[in-house]
Design a binder for these strands. Structure first.
Lengths: 216, 216
DNA sequence: GGTTTTAGCTACGGAATCGTATCCAACATG
DNA sequence: CATGTTGGATACGATTCCGTAGCTAAAACC
């Protein structure tokens, strides 16, 4: 019962640590990043406040204003810092396996950090009404990480001649991510392995002209 | 320059009407619905306030509290009232055409009312952190409208034997909507006709085992 | 150790929103 | 036209967040 509760009933669990001790530098910034992500996940980007982030991080407002100007500056920095890095595709000779692994990589990055996924979606949707924010999101978070998920695998096998290069269009390269997103929006849960298999077998592979039943 | 501006710089254009005149009943409720959708689109569900909605609708806070308890009650009601109704599929003998038309129906419902689409997405994402809201959204907005978009068309042609019933899975039925959503998230724009054609030709038709090049 | 940097704490006036109360007037009804 | 209903306007104390200031003290540096 050592929790405080925000105005909306959302549980806030302020970081606690031995009194008379202080974090600095990276440790402090990390805690604030985490707090900003939590705050955004719980109250939305527009509902996030400096006071709320400070509470969650167990620090003082002044410490936030020393480094940032507004909640969204902290959140964007946090999302960038935590964005899943690319595992260069193992490039075994296994198209189906690589596709499944690519989707799992994406899924896991949300599954293990649901607050992170929620915050990312919140910013993505908020940016819809704010072109400046949309531009920053893609420039500061998405773009720096390069090619993503299934597209890399598809292009790899196109180069090897396993699939028709003509069929690896932008639309096809987006199918996997689009389906994972939709599933999360519908169910509030990341898809399980069985569902990822279905995406690959029923949507992606047919789109590149491969009948999964012929793959053994 | 007869606009006021909200705290975040968002333009607010309060409803104006001849002074000494009043709306009541449906006319008033309709204006408030529109205002609630605008407010949510501009400031997010968590950022929306009763005061803001009242300003946009050009009415008084008291008039809102007379009927509703909180912004989200108004927004959910507004989304329900404005949700696109189902055009029963024309059921011509034209699978590809029906799929394209189904996607256009979905796209147009967003394209002609961008504020509505933004609000819908804002609520959808906010509901992710709030199971109660998610439940209400599906129960009060989505569910009452029944089967959606491409699935109806696919099932129709499965019954006619044009496509393999086995291949019309939930995953496949979701491809179209998933791709339209993703496109909107990425670009902040509803897809144009050419893009919808690509979704049908490159993703949906292959998934049900039809090569679009054989269709005409 | 002594010094510099950086966190933490408290407090403040201003602004926005909350939810309610009060009063008046426009509308609808008969 | 008389009456009852509904919307509009204003005001209020309470709460939350804003952004800044001033001070103390822990951590890092030399």
């Amino acid at each position: 019962m050592d929790e405080t509760r925000g105005a909306d009933g959302t549980a806030e669990a302020p970081e606690t640590r031995p009194k008379g001790t202080r974090r600095r530098g990276a440790a402090l910034v990390g805690a604030i990043h985490a707090a900003a992500v939590e705050e955004t996940a719980a109250r939305g980007l527009e509902g996030a406040t400096m006071e709320g982030i400070a509470r969650r991080a167990g620090t003082a407002k002044t410490s936030l204003y020393r480094r940032w100007e507004a909640p969204e500056d902290i959140v964007l920095e946090a999302l960038h810092a935590a964005y899943p890095m690319e595992e260069p595709t193992p490039a075994a000779d296994d198209l189906r396996g690589d596709l499944v692994r690519a989707l799992r990589l994406m899924r896991d990055s949300f599954d293990t950090r649901p607050k992170y996924a929620q915050a990312l979606m919140a910013v993505l949707v908020a940016s819809w009404a704010r072109p400046d924010l949309h531009e920053r999101l893609y420039r500061e978070v998405f773009d720096p990480r390069g090619e993503r998920f299934t597209k890399r695998a598809l292009l790899h096998y196109a180069d090897k001649g396993v699939v028709d290069r003509e069929r690896v269009t932008d639309v096809v390269a987006d199918i996997g991510e689009a389906m994972v997103f939709k599933h999360m929006l519908d169910t509030m849960q990341p898809p399980d392995d069985a569902y990822l298999d279905m995406i690959v077998d029923q949507a992606i592979l047919p789109a590149v002209g491969i009948d999964p039943r012929t793959l053994s």
